[in-house]
Structure formats: structure tokens, C-alpha cells
């Protein structure tokens, strides 16, 4: 169990590094909208392993993002923790049959939407941007972009024993 946690954390460290260094290459320039690779990992852990693993990985990865961003300690940790927990509701371990791929895309969209809503609504508190604009410019666009990137991963998931449930 600890090994699997360490494995997930190693992947998260790698994704965080990419998120902080290379993601600007695919960011939408106007509002610096970029996909959230780390949240995709958290959702994946939640779906594959359940609530507790989703929670732990969510919290740890969120904390890493917060520490590295240096602006708002605790905010990403909160969002990713909640996301990991929600993703745990769709855990494949409890299911007899597998999810269809488009359903997985829906789960990613839902989880990313919740995480981004919490994050951006708190992050832009006290700024002159209206809630409407926060939703359209940041929440919806980031969620959509993240879901698109997540869909690419879902498309390439192999139908082996583990991923059969997911795919």
C-alpha cells in the first residue's frame, strides 16, 4: 500500500514539475488558461483506488502546488482533497461492470469543474472581476481544457485487467 502511495506521489511530483515548468507551452495566451495535469492524476487515483487514496494524493499534490506557487497556501490542497474524495465515489473497485469512456470524460469534467469552481471563486475574492466572468473566463475554460487533455489520456487507456473497468 505504501509502495503504491509512493508510486503515485512520484508521478505527482513529476506532473507538478511539468505543470510548473512546461505547461505554459500549451497555455491559452490571453488569460493564461492551462490544463491541470495534477488534477487529472488525483481524479485517476480516486477512480482507480477509492476515497482514501484519492483524498491523500489530492491533499499531498495540492500542498505541493501551493508550496511551489507560493501565493495561497492551502487552497489547492483543499480543492484537490475534495476532488479526490468526489472521484472516490466513482471508484471501479466497487463495480461489477466498467465505465464507458465518455462517462469517464463526464466524471473528469465534473470533478475538475468542482475543483476549479472552489479554487477560482476563492482566488479572485476581492478582485474587481465579476462572478460571471470568473466562471466563464477561468472556471469553465480551465475545466474544459483540462477535460480535453484528460480525454486524450482516456482514449489511449489500454483495455488490460485493471483499466478494463475504467475504460
Amino acid at each position: 500500500m505504501i509502495v503504491s502511495y509512493l508510486k503515485y506521489i512520484a508521478i505527482v511530483i513529476l506532473l507538478v514539475a511539468i505543470q510548473k515548468t512546461l505547461i505554459w507551452l500549451i497555455a491559452l495566451s490571453n488569460y493564461n488558461i492551462s490544463p491541470d495535469l495534477v488534477i487529472l492524476m488525483v481524479i485517476y487515483v480516486g477512480i482507480a483506488r477509492g476515497h482514501i487514496e484519492g483524498l491523500v494524493i489530492g491533499f499531498v499534490s495540492g500542498l505541493m502546488i501551493d508550496v511551489l506557487s507560493g501565493s495561497f497556501l492551502g487552497l489547492s490542497a483543499l480543492c484537490y482533497t475534495i476532488t479526490g474524495f468526489i472521484a472516490g465515489y466513482f471508484c471501479v473497485k466497487e463495480r461489477e461492470d466498467s465505465y464507458k469512456k465518455y462517462f469517464l470524460v463526464g466524471i473528469v469534467f465534473l470533478c475538475a469543474l468542482i475543483a476549479n469552481t472552489i479554487y477560482f471563486l476563492i482566488f479572485y475574492q476581492g478582485s474587481p472581476i465579476t462572478v460571471q466572468n470568473i466562471f466563464l473566463i477561468y472556471i469553465l475554460s480551465t475545466t474544459t481544457y483540462t477535460t480535453l487533455v484528460g480525454s486524450l489520456f482516456i482514449l489511449f487507456i489500454k483495455d488490460n485487467k485493471r483499466t478494463a473497468y475504467i475504460g
Binding site: I52, L55, G62, F72
Partner: peptide, 18 residues
């Protein structure tokens, strides 16, 4: 699961409010 969620949310909120 809910206890761990509560714990992490509380830690996150404490960090946020600091």
C-alpha cells in the same frame, strides 16, 4: 473516509486562513 476528508479540509482551511 469522511474523517480523513474532514481532517484534510480542516488542515487546508487552517493553512488558508493563516
Amino acid at each position: 473516509e469522511y474523517l480523513i476528508l474532514t481532517l484534510f479540509v480542516v488542515i487546508s482551511l487552517v493553512l488558508i486562513f493563516n
